[in-house]
Amino acid sequence: MLIDSGSPGAAGTIGISLTINGERREIQVAPWTTLLDLLRERLDLTGTKKGCDHGQCGACTVLVNGTRINSCLSLAVMQDGAEITTVEGLASLAAREGKNSLHPIQEAFVEHDAFQCGYCTPGQLCSSVGLMNEGHAHSREEIREAMSGNICRCGAYTNIVDAIEDVMQQGGAR
């Protein structure tokens, strides 16, 4: 058995290693701590948002090894060894690729006014990068379908599609 936290009820924590936004961290977590709560409450990375905590809104979307997932439905302990990118790391993701300041998708969101209140925005951004990494969406219709896991109550949807299309036409995030 690789890991055993001990008997039920004990508040035993487990040591894990995560690379978050390029920085490797050794962290002790309780098994019931979600990746989302770890980021927000323990690591002060509040950019990743809690909108529903049940995988029904997409505000908590982060990239795990380049793939977008809902961080609210993932236990931190299960991500041991993973590379996590949050909205706070998108700019540095761009920097690593030789680009300055903001990631192109962040710039496109500002330019196209692809947000209003800003609360779903980190999830929309990470989801957009995930979508471009996946490479399955090519038309506006396909972008819409592939972004449907990210709810925007302010209704910035058409501007978000514009922003993603814009970046895709520039050659994508990477």
Binding site: M1, I3, P8, G9, A10, I14, P31, W32
Partner: peptide, 14 residues
């Protein structure tokens, strides 16, 4: 969410 213990086996048998 209740409290639980956590194990991570490496094989189906485990």
């Amino acid at each position: 969410m209740n409290r639980f213990d956590y194990v991570r086996p490496n094989t189906v048998a485990e």
